[in-house]
Design a protein around this nucleic acid. Structure first.
Ligand SMILES: [Mn+2]
Ligand SMILES: [Mn+2]
Ligand SMILES: [Zn+2]
Ligand SMILES: [Zn+2]
Lengths: 146, 146
DNA sequence: ATACAAATGCAAATGATTTGCAATAACATA
DNA sequence: TATGTTATTGCAAATCATTTGCATTTGTAT
């Protein structure tokens, strides 16, 4: 069965975190909540064009959300930053196409992965989180590219 | 037992890849090969100060090495890019301290992790690589910070 | 309706990385 | 060892994403 995306109650979420309910921030959270994949700033700008916000406002909103842990930035490689809502239920990992840069989020996590890492570490004795990203070539690109 | 770091034969490596043996590139590879952790550009600039290279030269060298797959860039979060030699023997994952940003490389990999990801993917049927980074607070910072 | 703080737009600053180009250094080979 | 070819370098300027200062606007509580 396919995962159903629920539009978030953006206004409620903003209120919970003490943010004012502004058009951009509301739309930002809605766009993010309706996306099955993490989105680049450029994409977010395009998708929220209707409320016409300045780039600086966009960045300020995203950083405020990250600070509040409503949103997380995932960095796939050194040139690509993507934003997604923090999903407390099931955290996500990602697969990136090395050809078209398509990103797929998958609710995947190896059990005990953190503990295994700890066991191998000299410097750490506790881990709070981890980020795992896969790189491959998506089916579409496999057809296209050679 | 502690992992022994072998200084690499930088000149041979450069030759194998058809690079000219210049002072900066030789020292860059030596510095990277002697570091137990991936290094930031600033650190590399400091550690290769003796050969006095322009930043643009440093970046050109690093990008050439990445292109040649001698070096890989790992991106821990959206503001931090680190470089390390590609270790064909045992690929690395990383643990980052959320306080002091210390990075530790660990030769750790969950078996079959790629296949498990594939099984959950709609868009991909093959994965070439993955990057896994852990975040915690290192022992030193646990003592220091509160 | 008023008052205050948060959020915004705009322009300018920042900072890391890249690029064009002329000068230089490395390397092959004569 | 001298010479020619090409990769590599330094420098300055360009680029690009992101951040910041500040005056103005907007949201919200009273
Ligand atoms: Mn996980
Ligand atoms: Mn691995
Ligand atoms: Zn693709
Ligand atoms: Zn630390």
């Amino acid at each position: 069965m396919k995962k159903q995306l629920q539009p978030i109650d953006a206004e409620a979420l903003l209120q919970e975190h003490g943010f004012k309910k502004t058009p951009l921030r509301i739309m930002l959270l809605e766009v993010l909540s309706l996306s099955p994949i993490p989105l680049a700033v450029k994409t977010l700008q395009r998708k929220t064009k209707k409320v016409g916000a300045d780039p600086s406002t966009m960045y300020r909103a995203l950083n405020a959300f990250i600070e509040a842990e409503i949103v997380q930035a995932i960095t796939v490689d050194k040139t690509k930053v993507l934003y997604e809502l923090v999903q407390t239920k099931n955290h996500m990992h990602h697969i990136v196409c090395d050809s078209c840069n398509t990103v797929e989020s998958i609710p995947f996590c190896v059990k005990n992965i953190d503990q295994q890492a700890i066991n191998m570490s000299r410097l750490f004795k506790k881990i709070y989180s981890h980020q795992l990203a896969f790189v491959g070539t998506c089916r579409k690109c496999l057809r296209t590219v050679r």
